[in-house]
């Protein structure tokens, strides 16, 4: 699942990634814009997704991602992988991974590299 949380309307990257993953043979759900963390996590649980990719270009990642992580924990979605993408300052990357993001994929990452990374992350996960 590719998700946009918060009021940020930048969806170019999220849609390119969604389409690239679909073209790479994955089942992709895109949430559309302006979702709350609650809506996104509920939808991800409902769809039983392997990977939840959250895109943020607004700078609000350090407020919104902890909420997503907390909701995933509450929903016992422990084996769902959280990947964060967008405009994220380098120094925030370790902060996000320490919170529980499986990876942070930054701008200018080629679409194929995103697909490859998603496959690696899923392959490395404990079997469900």
């Amino acid at each position: 699942m590719i998700a946009k949380v918060g009021l940020d309307g930048h969806d170019r990257g999220a849609k390119v990634v969604a389409r690239s993953l679909r073209d790479a043979g994955m089942d992709v759900v895109y949430t559309g814009l302006h979702r709350t963390p609650e809506e996104v996590v509920a939808a991800a649980v409902q769809e039983d997704v392997d990977v939840l990719g959250v895109s943020l270009l607004s700078g609000a990642h350090l407020t919104l991602i902890p909420r997503v992580v907390e909701l995933m924990r509450e929903a016992h979605a422990g084996d769902m992988l959280l990947v964060v993408g967008g405009v994220i300052p380098d120094e925030d990357v370790p902060v996000l991974t320490a919170m529980g993001a499986a990876d942070v994929i930054l701008q200018d990452t080629p679409p194929e590299a995103v697909a490859r990374r998603v496959r690696e992350l899923v392959a490395a996960r404990q079997p469900r």
């Binding site: 009021l7 709350t36 700078g59």
Partner: peptide, 10 residues
């Protein structure tokens, strides 16, 4: 509540 984390940011 929808403004959380975005006030005065961008």
């Amino acid at each position: 509540p929808k403004a959380l984390g975005e006030v005065g940011r961008e």
